[in-house]
Amino acid sequence: MTENALVIDTCITPFWRTELEPHSWMPEPWASKRHLPGILRQMYSAPTGIAPYGEYRDAARPADDAAALPGSSIEKVVAKLDADGARLGVLVPLTRGPQPDQDMSTVLCAATNDWLAQTWLGDEAAAGRFLGTIRVNPGDPTAAVAEIERWGDDPRFVQVGVPLEAQRPYGQRNYFPIWEAAARHRLPVVVHADGGATAGFKPTIAGYPHKHIDYASQESVSGLYHLASFILEGTLERLPDLRVVFGDGVHDLLMPFIWRMDADFAISRHEVPWVPKETVEYLDRFRFRTSRLEGPEEANPAWLRLSRAAELLVYGSNYPHWTSGSPNELPLGLEGEARERVLWRNAADLIRPRLERVGRTELVPAAAGADS
C-alpha cells in the first residue's frame, strides 16, 4: 500500500464476464443476429503473461469462474484498489475497437454504458469506489452527442471515452459536436487504445507492423496526431472548458514533438490564425496516464523537469492489462509534492469541475488544487 493519504486510479479496464455478454444488453437485431469481434486482442497480443490471456493478468479473473474474462471480477478490482491505497478508481471499458459498421459501434457503446451503470457503478461491494466513462463512437457524432446527453446528468460518470484509433485526427471539425457536448457537461475526454480486436485502422502511418514489440513501441505515437489536431484546429480555443486525457502513453514523446511544432509555428501561424498562442502554452489542457512502458529506467531529474511530469501526469494502473502497475512504480525521482500531484491531486483537479456540476464534491478534498 502506498504511503500517500490518497490515490486516484484514473484507468481501470473492466471486462464483460464472457465474450457473448454484450448481446444481452443490446436491442434486436444486434442481440441475436449480429456477431461482435472478440474482446481479447487478436492482433499484436502480448507474448508474456499466463496463458491463455497473455494480454491480461490471469489473476484478475473471478475466483469462482476459470472461464471468465480477466478484469470481470468487481471484488478483485476492489482488492486492487485496496492494495494500492486508492480511494477511487475510474473505469474505462473497451468497446472492441473502431468497427467498419458504424451502427454496430454505436449500439455497442450504448450497451457498454448501460452495463457499466447497472453493474459496476451500482454494485454494493464497490461501495461507491468507482467512477465511470461514457463510451461514444466518434465515427457517429450525432449518436455520440445523444449518448453524452443521455448520461450527462448521471453523477457516476466523470469523463467521455473514445478510441486512440481513428480515421481522422480528433481536432477536425466533424468531431466538434462531441467535444462541445463533453465540455458543456464538464466531462474530460479520455483517449485510450481500443484496437486489436477487429479490422480497425492501420496502427502506424506506414502500415501494419509484424510483431508485438514493433506495434507496442509505436502505438502511442497516434496520440501525438490527436494532440496536435486539438491544438492546431482551434478546438481548445473554441472550447475553454475542454480537457483531454491520453490514457495510453504519449508523455515520453511529448516535449520533443511540442518543440518541433513550436519551431515551425513562427512561419506557419498565418495558416492557423485561430491559434493565438504557441503550442506549448496549451499543454495545461492535457493530462497523460502514467505508463510502465515510458520514461527512463533510472531517476533522472532533468527528464522530470523538462517533461513537466509533476504537472502533466496522472496515475492510472491500467489494470488488468499485462502492463498494469501500482503507485510504487511511478517514474523514479517523483517525490514529495510532485509524487502527491501525480497520485491524486492532478486527477482531482481534472474531475472536480464535473463533480461540482453533479454535486459529488465529497469525493475529492476541497483543497486538492490549492497549490497546483
Rank of each mutant, 00 (worst) to 15 (best):
V7T: 10
I12F: 05
M26W: 02
M26Q: 03
S32E: 11
K33C: 09
I39N: 11
L40P: 03
Y44S: 10
Y53E: 03
G54L: 05
E55Y: 04
Y56G: 01
P62C: 10
A66M: 11
S72I: 11
S73P: 06
D84Y: 01
G85M: 02
R87Y: 03
V90Y: 01
L91W: 01
T95M: 09
G97T: 06
Q99R: 12
T106W: 03
C109R: 04
N113M: 12
A126S: 14
R129E: 09
G139M: 10
G139R: 07
V145E: 04
V145R: 08
E147N: 05
G152I: 06
G152S: 07
R156N: 11
R156S: 09
V160D: 02
V162R: 05
P177C: 08
R184M: 08
R186L: 00
L187Y: 05
V189H: 02
V189G: 02
V190M: 10
D194F: 02
G200E: 07
T204A: 08
G207W: 12
H212Q: 15
D214S: 15
Y215M: 14
Y215V: 04
E219H: 12
G223R: 03
H226K: 06
E233C: 14
G234H: 05
T235V: 14
E237R: 06
L239A: 06
P240M: 08
D241G: 00
V250N: 02
H251L: 08
L253F: 14
I258M: 08
R260S: 15
M261C: 14
F265A: 15
A266I: 14
H270C: 12
V275E: 05
F288M: 03
T290P: 04
R292A: 15
L293F: 13
N300P: 08
A302L: 15
L312G: 02
V314G: 00
Y315Q: 00
S324A: 15
S326Q: 10
S326K: 11
E335A: 12
E335G: 06
E337R: 07
R341I: 00
V342N: 00
R345M: 00
N346T: 00
A348L: 00
D349T: 06
D349H: 00
L350P: 00
R354M: 05
E356P: 01
G359E: 12
A366Y: 01
A370V: 03
